[in-house]
Simulated assay, not measured.
Amino acid sequence: MESPSLPLSAALFLMLGAAARFGSAAGLELAATIPMPAVKGRIDHLAADVQGRRLFVAALGNNTVEVLDVERNRHVKSLAGFNEPQGVLYVPQTNRLYVANGNGGRVDILNAASLLPIKRIEELDDADNVRYDAARHTVIVGYGKGALRILQAGSGESAGDVRLEGHPEAFQLERKGPRVLINVPDARQIAVVDRGKQITVAAWNVPAARNFPMALDEEGRRLFVGARSPAVMLVYDADSGKVVAKAKIGADTDDLFFDAVRKRIYVICGAGRLDVFRQESPDRYIKEDSVKTAPRARTGLFVPEDEKLYVAAPAAGSSPARVLVYRVR
């Protein structure tokens, strides 16, 4: 029996659809997997030493920081002595590594060359995310039931605190402005802080619960926020604080990143997938792809200098903990 022929228009539609699916899938290519065989439990955030070709992984459940060589895609060293490390930050200007210990209530500062500790900053309960303010040469730590601690990057000495309405999760710093934009899920808000004056200047409502990850498109004046209940990405006008777009995402997100070159947003979801959105315009977003990763792989790091997206996958069953290395195109 002869196969029925499709009308030319329908055939072209299918071909274009297949090409679109292929093109979107080709936007992320799994280039390598770096095993961390001794690591057990939950994995939190990552930091990169771009020049040194190293990746630092906060293995929260293992109480270690893992050091990876991303040139050779291999595990180098496991640093012990931490207590639920959550946030990690590498500062190239001082060659220091900052590690925020959630259960230890402290931030450890390490010499990034020797990987030996040089200072411990106490009384920072539930120390979490860490960011570097290059303009002011300070390090900002989110901690406690609602505060940011500002540290001098060279000495580690305190330069002040900013009080918030709840524990801060992800936050982003403007490079060309004075503001810090902070997810405060307990208050269901985004706090806007003037880091020069060290005061909160605004609070934006979040129409969802458990808003953890955040990314900023400073040039386009858009802020991207991931929420878990419901699982949605919210897009804010970074000037007015109004929600201008939203999109459904996978469950249990803990990291998302904006790719300014390709106008994409990468949403890492603990449900075992990586959602990719394309920014058609500041207020319009199209889902390009949903890439399968690994169970409970909800954190990672986008390194634009290397055109790599790293996704941390905890040990599960016979599969060891590992970092999935995606090349972006």
Rank of each mutant, 00 (worst) to 15 (best):
R228S: 13
L173A: 11
N211W: 04
P282I: 02
L173H: 11
E169V: 02
Y143V: 03
R222G: 02
Y143C: 10
A271Q: 15
Y143E: 12
L234R: 07
A203P: 09
H167R: 14
L256D: 07
G154N: 14
R278V: 05
V232P: 07
F277P: 01
M214H: 03
E219W: 00
Y236W: 10
R222S: 03
D252G: 00
R264P: 03
V180W: 12
I140A: 08
G154V: 09
G220P: 04
T253I: 02
Q152M: 01
A215Y: 06
K197Y: 08
L256P: 08
L181M: 13
A209L: 14
K197M: 14
I190W: 03
I199A: 13
H167Q: 15
A187H: 01
Q152R: 14
S281N: 01
L274E: 02
G196S: 12
G144N: 12
T200S: 14
K246T: 12
I190K: 05
R221W: 00
F277Q: 00
A187T: 02
D283F: 01
F257P: 11
V180T: 12
L164A: 09
R284D: 01
W204S: 09
G220E: 07
A191P: 10
P282S: 01
K263V: 07
M214K: 01
F224H: 11
P282W: 00
R262E: 10
T200A: 15
G196N: 14
V184Q: 03
R221T: 04
K246H: 15
V235Y: 07
R278C: 00
P207N: 12
W204E: 08
A208L: 06
G270S: 08
L274W: 00
I190R: 04
R284K: 10
R163V: 08
A231T: 13
A251S: 14
E280T: 04
E165A: 14
G156F: 03
A170G: 06
V193S: 08
Y236N: 10
E165I: 00
R284I: 00
